[in-house]
Every structure is written in structure tokens, then in C-alpha cells.
Design a protein around this nucleic acid. Structure first.
Lengths: 234, 234
DNA sequence: CGTAGCCTTGAAGGTGATCAATGTTTGTGG
DNA sequence: CCACAAACATTGATCACCTTCAAGGCTACG
């Protein structure tokens, strides 16, 4: 059990477990394992029987599901501290509602379903925190829905600002996510080409820089203005 | 307390409370009141301090929130048995994330926030059911996101089928909702005119009929085909 | 060193938004 | 009970944004 000590310390740093005793966390993570993933590796597959859920320890994972057209939609970007697939653990015969794929080198604490139903739901504090996390996710969906009629540039700006807001330290504008234009398009329900046209423009203006591993936002003001104002020539 | 007996029987009929003892339900509904609303009456206002949540008893309520453009987006249509605003009760100083407005004559059981935090979260069965309801809502959002690139006709078809699926008895294609084209547009992030153009076509073909109080779907096959197939001349 | 995935740019076309005008229904108060 | 305002429904014309299709270059990885 010594190998787990570091993990428990990591978990204590997440708001989900903040203030929890090490011993309590250890019980909540009974029989769980740390999964180490490389870029593009899949942890859970859409439609598979859901036997476990996870807590993101480091890196990031994208949650996606197929559409009728054969394309994929990215539903959510999970960053450290996020819980994935936990909310369906209480269902009778759960299947994964999304695929979970690593973005860059990432680590996930994989916890058996039985632990959720025996231990997690019995802990009132944890239940409350989970509900807050859940309602936060719903809030995100609602925010996105409110942007349905906004121009594509607003949606991209909102996405980037949203990702930045999730970072522990947002002051430097650094988003440690290997995010491709295709993934942005899949997340917004748009086409790669359109996303590129908007972002190249910003890139020229020095609004941000991207490498294959991260995004560096240099002028967040422009993004904020973009998604709050309706009248913009781009 | 006799006046409440009928309400408790109603609640027992909802999946949220199925199998609960009358006495248990009575405790969960401590200090709550039945609110009777007419068409267009507002129960909760977006941004107001959230002091209570609700359970829809009869009729329906639309959940909407304003957008940057001054328009409204309809986020969800609540029907009997649905819980509204419950998920934010555990937050420190909650405000309503949506406005709740009656669609036609409706009744809502309004429960003080304190009851949620003292009684509801202590009941493991109820917590599990709430989480299932919540994850169902998230599933809906994901389904909608998967349709982002689909033509408007598919989105409208999916909305109607979704509403029909929520009805206790769906076999007759009857949806007891006074749903306007504008509300459909606001729910899909589209314009009234576009919605009308699609629906008039269907109306001519006898796919459905609408009155000021309900929707009668006559040929669900056509709707199902519309939103599952990608190639359709309409 | 070849393939696959990603990025980029251009041209053409379509779906749906916007604007405008009019008809219809509902609810309200005199 | 009538008149009027307000909300909803409808139809047409125009236009913009974004998609689609096509083609080429770049980089990473086996």
C-alpha cells in the first residue's frame, strides 16, 4: 500500500477530496489502480459495459461519442480532479455513454463500480461534492447552448476561455492541452476548416500561440471581448 | 395535513419516489407547498437567490436562461415527476441557473432549500435516484450535441420524439404541451421562421397536428426516419 | 521513408438567418 | 360584448456564414 501514498496526496489536492483524511481516501480507493496512458490511448469505449469509473490524476482525457453521421462529437475535456463515468455507476447495467481517450501522457485512477455503490454513495460529503461537480457540468452544457446562435468565433473564444478557467493557475494564460483544430471543431459541432480560418486570424494578431503540446493565450482580452460582444468584424 | 394526502399519492407515482412509504415522503416534503400556476407564470427567476426547489406535479414548465444577445434559450422542458433546481441546493449561496415558467396550467411542489440539505441528501436511495435523473439530463445534452451538425429538420424531429418518449403513455403520439414554434426555435438555437418552414411541410404531409394546447403526432415513423438518416430531401 | 494525421488555403454552394409584411389567435379592459 | 394590444403563425426575398470539396504541405511515427 505504500505505492499509493503519493496518489492519496494527489487526491487530497483536488476539491472533490479536500479536507478528507488519508485513511478515508484510502477506503474510497479500495481495489483501484493507477492507469498510465500515452497520447491517443483509449481507457473506456462508448457502449462497453461500464465496470469502473475514474478520477483524472494528471494530463487530460477527451470524452467523445459517435454521431449518426459517423463523425465524433467531443462532449467534455477532463482535467486533473475530474471524475469520469461516475454518474452512471448507480444504473442497473451501465454502459459507457462516452469514450475516454488520453490527450498527451496522462494518468487515471481507475476504480471498480462496486466501490462506488458500496462506499462512495454512503459518504454524504462526497455525494454533495459529486452533485456540485455534476451540476457544474450541466451549467457548462447550458452555457454552450446559450451560444448556439453566436458566430463561430464566439464559440471558439468561449471554449478557450473555459479551458483556461479550469486551470489551477490561469494568470499566465497557459493551457497544457495538446488540442488540435479538429478536436475544437468536434467539440463545437463545426468543421475543421472554419475553425482554422478563425484561429489563423487570431494567431496572426498574436492572440495566442499553439504547439503540439499546449496552448499559450497571450491576449485573453480579445477572446473575452469576442464572446461577450455580438458585433465583431473578426 | 390531510390536504397533503393527495399530493403524496401523486408523488408515489413518480419514479423518484416509487416504493417510498407515505410517511417517508411526508418527511421529505416538510414545510413544502403546492404552487398552482397558469400559462406563462414564472416560478423561479434566473439569477435570483435560490431558496427553494421543486417537483413538477402536473402540467409542464420550461427552463430557460438569457443569452448575450438578449434572446432566451430554452434549456429543458420539465414534465410531471421532474425535479427542478434541486442540484444547486448544496451550493453555498445558490442562485437559480434558469428561469422556470409554466406552460399551460401546472402545479409544482415547492420545497425549501433547508429541507434538501437536511433530509434529501441523507437518504441514500433518493440520492441515487437523483443522480440517475441528473445523468439522464446530461445524456440528453449529449444527444443534442451529437445533432449539432445535423440539419434543422433532424433536430426538430429529435426534439419531438424526445418529448414523446417522456410521456407515460407514448403509444398514442399525444404530447400534452402547449409548445409554440418560437419555443421550439429557442430550444434548438434556431429561428422561428426556419422552424415554421420545416414544420409546415410536415403538417401538410399529415405527420402531426398541433393545437394551442397539445401536439398530436400521427406518423412518428417519418420523424424517426428524419433524424436517423442523414440524406433527406425533406 | 512511407503513411497517416494534422494544418492550410481557395472556390463554390447551401442551409438557415434576417428583414419585412400580413394574417391569426388570445387575453384584457372598457 | 366589443375593441385593441400582444403574442403567435406564416410567407417571401435577400444575404451571410459556414460547409463542402479539392489540393497541397507539414510533421510525427512505425
Amino acid at each position: 500500500m505504500g505505492a499509493f501514498d503519493g496518489v492519496i496526496t494527489e487526491l487530497q489536492g483536488f476539491s472533490l477530496f479536500s479536507g478528507f483524511e488519508r485513511e478515508a481516501i484510502k477506503q474510497l480507493c479500495d481495489s483501484s489502480r493507477v492507469i498510465i496512458n500515452r497520447h491517443h490511448e483509449t481507457v473506456f469505449n462508448f457502449g462497453d459495459e461500464a465496470t469502473a469509473f475514474g478520477v483524472v490524476l494528471s494530463g487530460a482525457y477527451k470524452l467523445s461519442r459517435p454521431t449518426a453521421g459517423g463523425e465524433d462529437v467531443i462532449v467534455y475535456f477532463s482535467t486533473p480532479g475530474d471524475v469520469v463515468a461516475a454518474f452512471i455507476m448507480t444504473r442497473p447495467n451501465p454502459v459507457y455513454p462516452v469514450s475516454v481517450v488520453a490527450m498527451g501522457p496522462s494518468r487515471l485512477l481507475k476504480i471498480p463500480r462496486a466501490v462506488y455503490n458500496s462506499t462512495w454513495v454512503r459518504n454524504p460529503t462526497l455525494v454533495t461534492r459529486m452533485q456540485m461537480s455534476l451540476s457544474g457540468r450541466i451549467g457548462l452544457f447550458q452555457d454552450q447552448k446559450a451560444l448556439l446562435r453566436a458566430p463561430l468565433s464566439s464559440k471558439i473564444a468561449a471554449l478557450l476561455i473555459g479551458l483556461l478557467d479550469k486551470q489551477p493557475d490561469q494568470s499566465d494564460g497557459y493551457i497544457p492541452l495538446p488540442l488540435t483544430r479538429k478536436e475544437i471543431a468536434d467539440s463545437l459541432g463545426s468543421s475543421v476548416e472554419s475553425v482554422i480560418r478563425v484561429m489563423s486570424e487570431w494567431s496572426k494578431r498574436g492572440v495566442f500561440e499553439t504547439t503540439e503540446k499546449h496552448i499559450q493565450i497571450l491576449k485573453p482580452e480579445i477572446l473575452i471581448q469576442e464572446f461577450s460582444s455580438q458585433t465583431e468584424t473578426t
